[in-house]
């Protein structure tokens, strides 16, 4: 513990990240460049999120880390251990008990409160990147609020598939100004981007930080005749019976057997503890 500065990063790096975070909050949805550092984990493992979390943590915080909704996957476990070692903060798996939540590709099912911070790990922060590879051009497009290309992309979805086929990293417009990539969360989570919590986004490899303050208008892009739909698998959770949570499909045998379970492990475990049962719960299956 004492071999590291509090929360791993040196103070000058934290100041630089903190200044970027404040500008991000002041300009909701705008990607602030920052001098991302090498972290003791590979790019793609949440180096951006880890740097943002490190800049935010205080010794009083209780940290929760989720990967695709789960507290117990490799990425979540290793980042949790990292901050237990370098910051000495308490950790938790309960959404309600956490003050800072770092997430990869999900927003917890339980609505977040005023005093919580949600930190997203972001692989590609630029929503226009796959449409226009040049940074100079996408920066200009944001400056001029020139987002026609994004609507053409969504229109082409409709022309080809009959519906908007984008199912994750679904672009949103923040406070009527910047089009933003919400990180690869399923579009089921998009309505939850309007939250009481502070939402911070960190992209380590791409060196960008952006943010959504609490109670900020976040609109998923769509068309009048093809409105945005927050879709999910048309099933209930097989363990807790929830019909309103985002589900993972799990193949259970080699004969086409499958089950659907909540991707948010804390949400599912809490419901099971409250006595909710699904189709494949041990009691129900007996």
């Amino acid at each position: 513990m004492s071999a590291y500065n509090f929360a791993y990063l040196d103070e000058q790096t934290k100041r630089m990240i903190r200044r970027a975070l404040l500008k991000g909050i002041a300009i909701p949805g705008y990607q602030v460049p920052f001098a991302s550092r090498e972290m003791p984990m590979p790019y793609g493992w949440g180096t951006g999120g880890v740097q943002v979390t490190a800049a935010c943590l205080t010794p009083e915080d209780r940290l929760k880390v989720i990967d695709q909704g789960a507290d117990d996957t490799t990425n979540a476990v290793s980042i949790r251990k990292f901050f237990e070692t370098t910051a000495g903060v308490e950790t938790t798996e309960r959404t309600r008990a956490a003050t800072v939540i770092q997430t990869r590709h999900r927003i917890p099912e339980e609505p977040l409160g005023e005093d919580q911070i949600l930190v997203y790990q972001v692989p590609i922060p630029e929503p226009l990147r796959f449409l226009e590879p040049r940074e100079t051009e996408t920066r200009r497009m944001h400056a001029l609020e020139e987002y026609g290309l994004m609507h053409v992309k969504l229109y082409e979805d409709i022309a080809r598939h009959g519906a908007i086929a984008t199912s994750y990293a679904y672009p949103v417009k923040v406070e009527g100004r910047y089009v933003m990539d919400p990180s690869p969360i399923p579009k089921f989570d998009n309505p939850k981007l309007e939250s009481a919590a502070i939402q911070l986004f960190g992209a380590g490899r791409e060196q960008r930080i952006y943010a959504i303050p609490p109670h900020t208008r976040v609109v998923s892009l769509d068309f009048e005749d093809h409105p945005f739909v927050a879709s999910k698998a048309d099933h209930a959770c097989d363990l807790c019976g929830a019909d309103h949570s985002y589900l993972d499909e799990v193949i259970v045998d080699d004969a086409g057997g499958r089950m659907f379970v909540c991707s948010d492990t804390d949400f599912c475990a809490t419901r099971q503890a409250e006595g909710h049962r699904g189709r494949l719960s041990p009691e129900a299956a007996e």
């Binding site: 500065n5 509090f6 929360a7 103070e11 934290k14 100041r15 903190r18 975070l21 404040l22 909050i25 002041a26 800049a55 935010c56 943590l57 205080t58 010794p59 009083e60 502070i198 943010a211 303050p213 609490p214």
Partner: peptide, 18 residues
């Protein structure tokens, strides 16, 4: 410094975000 700056930043972040 690390702890006091962290607490001060959280207050500043909270003030600017709200």
């Amino acid at each position: 410094a690390p702890v006091e700056a962290a607490r001060a930043f959280r207050a500043a972040l909270s003030a600017l975000a709200r």
